[in-house]
């Protein structure tokens, strides 16, 4: 024991020394290699690749797999193939109802919102005190959707809402803004337009800023008035911006459902009148625990959006 232990520790020491001598040069070159032009970009891009794999590609495949099964998330999934897709497209009346609600919502919100944003942006870029106007019009778009929903729930309440009490005071009727199935979705559209107005005005004013002022000066010299300037110069030259705003608003409108969810306590009522397809999916997944069918709804809605995007 007493003979061997010094030798052993000596051996270990010298081995360690050799390790140091052996490893030091390659270690330095490893650091140098990592920060070389060939390797560094891959290190910079690694977080994106990891995220893309775990939170983009994997979920897309996983969701497709789930959509081919019957699964309540508590017991094991049961393979059903394309049954959910078949059921939704051919049998389920609710799916089509929500589909038309979605189309109405997206179409009505651009039909009302885009012209409004264009006219207001035009007025806004040619007036004084632009910072003040801008801050006012931007307020709703930086407000969280819960606050937006409750601001309007209080204003539009049937009996105690500010609006209906004011209408009643003037001796007018009191529409059920959010309780009448024929009116509720339109009310949601109007609230959504109110939310998005600042955003769209901003896009339009960026487009307006790129129109050369000399067009207007020339038109004025020829005696054109403000209205003629707007319809003959602004509207045609703003076409690319208008198309961009229309398309992006329509697509984001098709996938939107947060406002409806919060406004209606998550049930998309009254009588499903505000249930858009994405909300139908969310309820199906997290209330009814039908993960398979809900994933099929998500993929069908995505297919619709994809087709519209590609057109």
């Amino acid at each position: 024991m007493t003979d061997t232990s010094p030798t052993a520790s000596e051996q270990m020491l010298s081995a360690a020394r050799e390790d140091l001598i052996d490893q030091e040069p390659p270690r330095r070159s490893l650091a140098a290699r990592l920060s070389s032009k060939a390797v560094a970009p891959w290190i910079f891009i690694t977080p994106m690749l990891l995220f893309g794999a775990v939170f983009f590609i994997l979920p897309l495949l996983y969701a497709f797999f789930i959509s081919l099964t019957r699964w309540n998330s508590l017991s094991a999934p049961k393979w059903v193939g394309f049954k959910h897709y078949e059921y939704l497209l051919t049998t389920d009346p609710v799916f089509w109802q929500t589909f038309w609600n979605t189309m109405y919502f997206a179409a009505a919100s651009i039909g009302i919102g885009v012209p409004l944003a264009m006219v207001l942006a035009y007025a806004f870029t040619r007036s004084k005190g632009r910072t003040v106007w801008r801050s006012i019009y931007w307020l709703p778009m930086i407000t969280n959707v819960v606050a937006v929903a409750y601001i309007w729930k209080f204003v539009l309440d049937d009996r105690y809402g500010l609006l209906n009490r004011a209408l009643g005071f003037l001796g007018l009727g009191a529409p059920g803004w959010l309780t009448d199935p024929n009116l509720a979705l339109t009310s949601v559209v109007l609230i959504f337009v109110w939310m998005q107005l600042g955003h769209n005005m901003l896009l339009f004013s960026a487009g307006l800023a790129s129109i050369d002022e000399s067009y207007y000066e020339a038109a004025r010299l020829d005696g054109a008035n403000e209205r003629q300037c707007f319809f003959r110069i602004t509207v045609p030259l703003l076409m690319p911006t208008t198309l961009f705003v229309l398309i992006t608003n329509f697509i984001s409108g098709l996938s939107y459902f947060t406002l409806m969810l919060v406004l209606t306590d998550g049930n998309g009522g009254p009588l499903r009148s505000t249930t858009v397809t994405a909300l139908y999916m969310y309820k199906m997944a997290f209330e009814d625990l039908r993960m398979g069918r809900a994933s099929a709804v998500a993929y069908l809605l995505f297919a619709v959006i994809l087709v519209i995007t590609l057109i």
């Binding site: 969701a63 969310y282 809900a294």
Partner: peptide, 12 residues
């Protein structure tokens, strides 16, 4: 769109 990812990411 984001709604496509809600269910799968939840379970991932």
């Amino acid at each position: 769109p984001f709604f496509l990812f809600i269910i799968p990411i939840f379970f991932i």
